[in-house]
C-alpha cells in the first residue's frame, strides 16, 4: 500500500478536527473535535509503525504501543473534560464556551449575563475579603 494514503487521510482528519475546535461553540462538540484530532494522530502512528516494522531489522512496535497509550489518555481526557463541562454547566447554566469570558480583559461588557457575572464577581470579592 502506498504510504501516502493513510498519511493524507490522517492529515485531512486532523484538519477537520482543527476546524471543529476553532469553529464550534458547544464545549462537548469541541471535545468531539479533539477526539478527531487524536484519532488522526493514531492513524499516523499505526501506518508508520507498520511501514517501519517491515523496513527495519528489529522493531519495538513503538507506534502501536504509543497508539494504545494515546487511546488510554484520550479516554482519561474525555472523562476529565466532561466532568469540567458538567461542573461549568451546573454553576453557570450554559456549556457555550463563548460565554465563559470571566478571565477576558475587557472594560465594556455588553453580554446579556453581565449582571449575573458582576454580582458573582462582587460575591467573590466579598468572600475573598471575608476569608482574608
Amino acid at each position: 500500500m502506498h504510504l501516502a494514503y493513510p498519511a493524507v487521510l490522517s492529515a485531512l482528519l486532523f484538519c477537520t478536527g482543527l476546524y471543529g475546535v476553532l469553529a464550534r461553540r458547544n464545549a462537548i462538540l469541541v471535545l468531539m473535535s479533539v477526539e478527531l484530532m487524536l484519532n488522526a494522530v493514531n492513524l499516523n502512528l499505526v501506518a508508520f509503525d507498520v511501514w517501519l516494522s517491515r523496513a527495519a531489522e528489529e522493531t519495538l512496535h513503538s507506534g502501536q504501543a504509543l497508539t494504545l497509550f494515546t487511546i488510554a489518555i484520550a479516554a482519561a481526557e474525555i472523562g476529565i473534560g466532561l466532568a469540567i463541562v458538567l461542573a461549568v454547566h451546573r454553576n453557570r447554566g450554559t456549556a457555550d464556551i463563548d460565554k465563559l469570558r470571566d478571565t477576558a480583559e475587557r472594560h465594556d461588557s455588553d453580554g446579556p449575563d453581565h449582571d449575573a457575572l458582576a454580582a458573582e464577581r462582587s460575591d467573590e470579592d466579598q468572600k475573598a475579603e471575608a476569608t482574608a
Binding site: 492529515a11 476546524y19 476553532l22
Partner: peptide, 19 residues
C-alpha cells in the same frame, strides 16, 4: 442554530491552509 461560533470563516481558512 448557535452550534457554530462567529469565527467559523476564520477557522475554515486556518483549517484549509493547514490541510
Amino acid at each position: 442554530p448557535d452550534a457554530d461560533s462567529g469565527n467559523r470563516w476564520a477557522a475554515l481558512a486556518v483549517a484549509v491552509a493547514a490541510a
